[in-house]
């Protein structure tokens, strides 16, 4: 195991980790705002990426506009899901399992729809910063990956600032922690919940758009990303988006270090075992919050 390989593993681990983190942050934000576990978070990534691909290739939009379009698509689908389904079910006091079933059903529907309407091809997007790579000690990282990491970290910090400094963010937190109390101070709880889903959709779409230049997006990508994002979010304590970021990067690094440290054959076994051990040893999540018991 050379230094070069370790460095390569770190590069790959952090890159993947930020992708998991983006999905996890969206999941975390939605849970924080509505106590719904969004099993279709990965599908937001697919929606965002596919919309960008279509706008870019079929409609000939310039790349930045296409990216904006993709992100907007994620946000709109998030809003639609909240307004059409979640609000109705929340009104009927549906249980947490019902919401989980809802999002599982939506995930299946969306993944099958992508296959049906767009086809089974994988699609790529142009990488930011071109096809160039940075080589350090024989370890390679694409410029796009560096951008991805930077944007991911930026998104994390922005999200934290949003929830703690802006009125909207604080209102969203208040609405989820204590809906009745929040309502008495004039916060429109239902609208806050919609914004939560918009935020989740936006983050998911962003993650999808950023990861597509590295690995093609196709109809099967959603479920994989959801599972990794869920792991990232739970590791981080589930209601702490910054925690999801840490959780995601941890997961990414554990995976790639397991490949070089043990063997690529047992990567999943090692990574998930470490996951379980972390959870047992740190029941509050990696960034632990007092009183946060995972739901």
């Amino acid at each position: 195991m050379t230094l070069s390989l370790v460095l390569q593993a770190v590069f790959a681990g952090v890159t993947n980790g930020i992708v998991y983190a983006l999905v996890g942050m969206g999941l975390s934000a939605i849970f924080k705002g509505s106590r719904v576990i969004n099993a279709m978070q990965g599908e937001f990534a697919v929606i965002g990426a596919m919309t960008t691909v279509l706008l870019l290739t079929k409609s000939g939009w310039p790349y930045p506009a296409a990216i904006a379009g993709g992100a907007l698509a994620g946000a709109l689908v998030g809003a639609f899901i909240e307004i059409a389904f979640v609000r109705y079910m929340a009104g009927k006091k549906a249980s947490e399992d019902s919401f989980l079933l809802l999002t599982i059903g939506l995930a299946l529907t969306l993944s099958a729809s992508v296959l049906f309407f767009i086809g089974r091809d994988g699609h790529l997007l142009p990488p930011i910063g071109g096809e160039g790579v940075l080589i350090v000690l024989d370890a390679v990282i694409q410029f796009h990956a560096l951008w991805l990491i930077a944007i991911g970290i930026g998104a994390t910090l922005l999200l934290r600032a949003f929830f703690h400094r802006t009125t909207l963010g604080l209102s969203m937190m208040a609405a989820s922690i204590d809906p009745d109390g929040a309502a008495t101070t004039g916060i429109n709880v239902a609208r806050m919940r919609t914004f939560t889903f918009v935020l989740g959709g936006l983050l998911g779409a962003l993650g999808g758009i950023l990861v597509t230049p590295l690995i093609a997006v196709d109809y099967t990508l959603g479920l994989n990303l959801t599972l990794k994002g869920f792991a990232a979010a739970v590791l981080g304590g589930l209601t702490n988006p910054l925690g999801a970021a840490v959780g995601g990067v941890t997961l990414g690094l554990v995976e790639s270090l397991a490949i070089i440290g043990i063997s690529s054959s047992y990567k999943d076994v090692v990574a998930f075992t470490v996951l379980i051990v972390i959870m047992i040893l740190m029941p509050q999540g990696i960034l632990g919050r007092a009183g946060r018991r995972g739901g």
Binding site: Y88, L101, L102, I104, L106, L108, T109, A112
Partner: peptide, 9 residues
């Protein structure tokens, strides 16, 4: 997928 959504809603 839609049937699942329908049942739960």
């Amino acid at each position: 997928g839609l049937a699942l959504v329908g049942v739960v809603v």
